[in-house]
Amino acid sequence: MGVGIRTHELRKVFTTPPPLAAAGARFAGGGGGGLFKKKKDAKPNPNIVALDGVSLEVAPGEIFGLLGPNGAGKSTTVGILTTRVRPTSGEAYIGPYDAWKQQVDAKRLIGVVQQRPNLDFSLTAREILLFHAAYYGISGAERHERANRLLDQFQLTPRADDMTRGFSGGMMQRLSVARALMHDPQVLFLDEPSTGLDPQTRLLLWGIVREYNESGKTILLTTHNMEEADTMCHRVAIVDHGKVIALGTPAELKASIPGGYLVQLKLSAVPESLIEKLKSLSGVTEVRATGNSVDIYAGRGGSLIGEVAAAAAENSADLHDVHIAEPSLENLFLHHTGRSLRQ
């Protein structure tokens, strides 16, 4: 039982600019416009490399996370696996089925919550669930029973018979997840499911996802929130610029950061002698200086501060700010890319 996911050397090159909605931010503006505008300001077709050889293997029954900043290629990976994006090259499998060549078989196995709510605005919340189940051939009585249960579980019963156009973002998101669960899919895709959810709803969602996973279902979750990846996922792939840059359990990944702890300093000046001194402190594995900031990767955190302050004073540099970060996926990302996930 259980269905896994596999991709092999997936590449995707977009040759049209992203729609305004896909918040890629690299190509702003340019949508809409009149009929005759096209020719005049025709730009050469862009070549956006969204995925650059992504190979993943997700075991049946696993909660697998794709962690990466905006534009990393998470949604494109999900898009290919869910038959919505045509891969430029490479293969994607849902269980035994090729997601592109055996679309119908693949679609039968998956439930998808896309990044942006895409509810059917012509229907009420309940109708959205009922019609969704009907597409999968679930019988009438069973449909109603499941819809009632999910509406209740996601606290949507009071609004069940309203049109969804006026729903808040959080409600739409909950309904999208409920819809994806209606046909009891073997593999559940959640593309940044908790963006825009209040903390309480996020906990509700995490609980439901865990419970669903415990019934043997495979879950692929994308996020740019390392806390979510850390607490929810059995394994995590960190992606950036369409490539997997690290892969493992959250614990393994965190252990792979040199030192584990990250101590960030801001100083009035960073003389070379200070850097040498910091490098020589016990437990320090790596020191990176950029301008007046210094990042120290070390095996200990708080106990280092006294020695750091002394070293700064010795080299007549004023210490303006000290921040200690415990071992985290955020630090790992920073270590690999020199950028923060949050930006």
Binding site: R84, R108, R116, L119, D120, Y135
Partner: peptide, 23 residues
């Protein structure tokens, strides 16, 4: 008219494109 609305950025048609049938 419905197609125009459904293919707009709200992508209302997405759920039906995922239905187990060739699109």
């Amino acid at each position: 008219m419905p197609l125009l609305a459904e293919f707009q950025f709200t992508r209302e048609i997405e759920d039906r494109l995922l239905a187990p049938i060739r699109s």
